[in-house]
């Protein structure tokens, strides 16, 4: 009998702690598939951040360094400079990367560090209980924006993939979603591209992956999944914003 589907080698055979309907598990799998695809599991080092993504080491069968909140790109810089032959990626949420860690991500990208950044945008602080994030949509109610995000006071949600594309040091920047099978296949392709860039030494690669957070959005998984395709994709357009191979 021919095996047509299996767990990626880079993922452990364990249950995740993620809530039903959360997209982290799917994004984990796509990252693991990309690592497998290029056969780099044995030299890959993951950089975990603070938030729901912190348990990276529990799910990925690779070496992992846990970093302080927002600092993963700086930690990744230290690891990659010390071990330039390794494949280094960070996996960060939106509070981690786009709020407290804005400085670290901008400057690691601008230096053109040879790393890959997986940025998971679910428009909220998941682990701490659904507070307003830098990506929270205008009008969206959260536990710290009970009247809805007010652009006049809170600013507009940050579009990180577009912002990263502006930086000279960035070789590849794309936004993907995993809410439909069509988007999922596109996401798989772009995540693979991001890792290929690092494997081929082409520079800094950035993936923004939109994710549902049913628990903190107060929605069932199906409704949450639907919101990704409507409200989120409406503001956070999917696509490749920079690809030096095409320039």
């Amino acid at each position: 009998m021919q095996q047509v589907f299996r767990r990626p080698l880079s993922l452990k055979d364990v249950q995740t702690h993620f809530c039903p309907g959360c997209h982290h598990g799917t994004i984990h799998r796509l990252v693991a598939e990309a690592i497998d695809e290029y056969g780099v599991q044995k030299r890959t080092i993951g950089i975990a951040s603070v938030g729901c993504s912190v348990f990276l080491y529990s799910y990925f069968n690779i070496d992992v360094v846990e970093s302080p909140h927002g600092r993963a790109p700086a930690v990744a810089t230290g690891v990659k400079r010390a071990k330039p032959d390794s494949i280094v990626f960070t996996y960060q949420g939106d509070g981690d990367l786009a709020a407290i860690g804005t400085s670290e991500i901008i400057h690691a990208a601008n230096r053109g560090e040879q790393i890959t950044v997986i940025f998971v945008n679910n428009t909220t602080y998941g682990m701490t209980g659904g507070q307003m994030a830098p990506t929270t949509l205008v009008g969206q109610k959260t536990s710290t924006s009970p009247y809805g995000r007010n652009q006049a006071k809170d600013g507009a949600p940050l579009r990180m993939a577009e912002l990263m594309a502006q930086l000279e040091g960035v070789a590849f920047s794309a936004r993907v979603a995993v809410n439909t099978s069509r988007n999922l296949f596109e996401a798989k392709k772009q995540i693979k591209n991001a890792f290929r860039y690092q494997v081929e030494g082409k520079g800094f690669s950035f993936i923004e992956a939109l994710s549902a957070c049913p628990t903190n959005w107060g929605m069932d998984p199906l409704r949450a999944n639907e919101r990704v395709g409507t409200e989120m994709c409406d503001y956070f357009k999917l696509g490749v914003f920079k690809n030096v191979e095409n320039l």
């Binding site: 600092r71 930690v75 400085s103």
Partner: peptide, 21 residues
Amino acid sequence: EFIQAESEIASINMLLGASAA
């Protein structure tokens, strides 16, 4: 490798990463 980092916070975390390696 010498990196003039963007901040003291980044510096210490680069140290953390290099040391972890």
